Amino acid sequence: MMTGRALVTGATGFVGANVVRLLLERGAEVRVLVRPGSPRTNVDGLPVELALGDLRDRDAVRRAVRGCRRVFHVAADYRFWARDPRELYASNVDGTVHVMDACLAEGVERVVHTSTVGTVGLSALPTPCDETTPLARGQLTSHYKRSKLAGERAALAYVARGLAVVVVNPSAPVGAWDVKPTPTGRILVDFARGRLPAFVDTGLNVVHARDVAEGHLLAAERGRVGERYILGHRNMTLAEILAEVGAILGRPAPRVRLPYLAALAVGALDTAVSRLVTHRPPSVALEAVRMARRRMFFDAAKAVRELGLPQTPVRIAFEDALAWFGERGYLPRSGEGKAAWASR
């Protein structure tokens, strides 16, 4: 049972929506900070208090924080391409400062700041990386990662000023409420729709989205102030992910491996067209291809040991995600009216 009011920023997004639902299950009174024009599909019908405002609006953030015992700062501008990169820094850095300033001024007991494993170092060694792995030179190639690292460091700087901040670094969540969907969710959707004829040789750390939400609540209860916790589970190559999803869908996984240089060329061309012609996000962002060059393998042992982070099998995460996508029309449907992924 979690008592007192909790504020969740980013509640309309994937991770935030899961955090809100878990808080409500645990009996918390929940307030959510929502931009006036933001789609509210992920919070519609929930017994939450809406606080309208933007992270970039210092006064709106202060009003949202007022009266809250705990704050889960999940919101972020998550894009691999932006026509104006300054927008990412305005939300991910300045917005974070506004949240931390408000929490300090309003006497919030505990703040959980959601970062990303993209700020954790990647080693050339075959062993998975953890919170202690230093950032490799040239690793932060995107404005998204740079802005998230700057935001994470800004949040942790408030510890010295007396604010109880804990940082969580989710890996690649899979599960329900992935409305956009995320790049990992898009892999599942494209595969189910027959739009994934080839793949690149890369790897991810996959974790159930509900476990990530649980990790946020556990960080608020048990996390050590000033520490970072990787919220992850199983390291899988993309080929292994596709094989697992293929087994659920009852169809063979793609066997064509696309050379990295070919994928890089496609990403560079598509991103150039977006920047110079369409001014819309590219289908294949160059930064996403660059990220795929390294296997993003991580060790969540610290969160398991200190927080008690659950480790739900990835098969369940994939099944839950496909069920959610199927129920909401993301996936094709068979002639019997059942989702194609389920008609086996």
Rank of each mutant, 00 (worst) to 15 (best):
A82Q: 11
L46E: 09
K338A: 15
P170F: 08
G308H: 04
S171C: 13
K338Q: 14
T127G: 11
E240H: 02
Y78V: 13
T12E: 07
G226L: 00
R294C: 01
A339H: 10
E306M: 11
R5F: 08
G118E: 13
K145M: 14
R40N: 02
A82P: 00
S343Q: 09
A301C: 08
A339Q: 12
P281E: 04
P183V: 05
L50H: 11
L122K: 10
V111S: 11
A303S: 14
G27F: 11
R40L: 01
A239W: 02
A160H: 05
Y78F: 15
T141C: 14
C129S: 15
N92V: 03
G335I: 11
V166P: 01
G215D: 06
C103K: 03
N205M: 04
P259S: 04
R83P: 00
V74L: 08
L23Y: 10
V108L: 08
A219N: 05
L217S: 07
V99E: 01
A243Q: 10
N42Y: 05
P128M: 08
V61M: 02
M1A: 14
E327A: 15
E227V: 02
H216L: 06
R161W: 02
L196A: 10
R62N: 00
A11K: 13
S334K: 09
L55I: 02
R344F: 12
L242Q: 05
V256E: 03
R290E: 09
A176M: 06
N169M: 08
H73K: 01
A17P: 03
N235H: 01
L52W: 09
R255Y: 00
T3E: 13
K148D: 05
A51K: 02
E244A: 15
P173A: 11
L104T: 00
T9H: 11
G246D: 09
A28V: 08
R31D: 07
G10K: 02
T132G: 01
V15T: 14
P36T: 00
V304S: 12
V225H: 04
G37R: 14
D201F: 00
L276R: 14
Y260A: 05
F318Q: 06
T41V: 13
S171N: 00
Y330A: 15
G118D: 07
G67C: 07
F297E: 01
G45E: 03
G16N: 08
D178T: 00
P170D: 10
L238T: 03
G151L: 03
T278D: 12
E152V: 03
L218D: 07
A28G: 14
T3L: 09
T312D: 11
K148Y: 06
R344W: 10
